[in-house]
């Protein structure tokens, strides 16, 4: 983990062309960037490509970066990259859902729970991801940044290049749509539905 002072120093050295310093920043931020790409794309392979492209774009544009918030800047690049990927993948979807979820279960952090619990959790995760995939990309980005990346509305507005009011609206609608989708899968989510009741 890199401290804020170290990060600022690394960024300055990156701007002078030191690739090793940039790669230290990559190692520091590759997990959140990859997770944002993964939830946006819903596909591990595309998420890897998007994450890689994000860091390449960041390296190319590091000279113009002003010392504000490096993570937000990376997230914005990643969000734009994912948006472009989603636009192009709409025209030519490549990976089947089964293949994708197989790869997804490889990518997630390993757990030591018993197989039954794991299987159930995996199914729930798949359904949540499917639900996310049904959202409009802007709503999905807002929800993912808020609930998974745990960013506040101000940061999300900066990343999405919009107002806080719009962010609030997108998160609200995104959650409602996702809630409606999950309710339709009621049999899968017995426990959670009971929680609601």
């Amino acid at each position: 983990m890199v401290t804020q002072i170290e990060e600022n120093d690394l960024i300055k050295r990156c701007q002078q062309g030191e690739i090793n310093c940039f790669n230290r920043l990559v190692e520091n931020y590759q997990v959140p960037v990859f997770n944002l790409a993964l939830r946006m794309m819903g596909d591990v392979h595309s998420a890897e490509d998007a994450a890689q492209e994000t860091f390449i774009s960041a390296w190319k544009g590091i000279e113009s970066f002003q010392l504000v918030n490096f993570k937000s800047w990376l997230m914005r690049i990643c969000a734009n990259t994912c948006r472009d990927y989603l636009r192009s993948s709409k025209r030519s979807p490549k990976v089947s859902l089964e293949d994708n979820f197989a790869a997804l279960s490889e990518a997630v952090t390993p757990s030591h729970d018993n197989p039954e619990v794991l299987a159930e959790r995996k199914m729930v995760e798949e359904e949540i991801q499917k639900g996310l995939n049904t959202l409009h990309p802007d709503q999905k980005l807002a929800v993912v940044l808020c609930d998974l990346q745990e960013m506040n509305y101000d940061e999300i507005a900066g990343i999405m290049g919009t107002s806080i009011g719009t962010v609030r609206s997108r998160i609200s609608r995104g959650r409602q749509h996702l809630r409606d989708y999950l309710l339709k899968q009621g049999e899968l989510f017995g426990n959670q539905i009971r929680l609601i009741e």
């Binding site: 062309g17 690739i19 940039f22 790669n23 990559v26 190692e27 590759q30 997990v31 960037v33 990859f34 997770n35 993964l38 939830r39 591990v44 890897e48 994450a51 890689q52 994000t54 860091f55 390449i56 390296w59 997804l104 490889e106 990518a107 997630v108 952090t109 757990s111 959790r121 729930v124 995760e125 949540i128 991801q129 929800v143 609930d147 998974l148 959650r175 409602q176 996702l178 809630r179 999950l182 309710l183 989510f189 959670q192 929680l195 609601i196």
Partner: peptide, 27 residues
């Protein structure tokens, strides 16, 4: 409110995925 809170909680259940490879770059 309760249903939205549950939705948020379910989203948070999604595990953190670890990338299978490094994304370091060479110039």
């Amino acid at each position: 409110l309760t249903s939205l809170q549950t939705t948020k909680r379910m989203l948070k259940q999604l595990p953190v995925a670890l990338p299978r490879r490094s994304f370091t770059v060479t110039a």
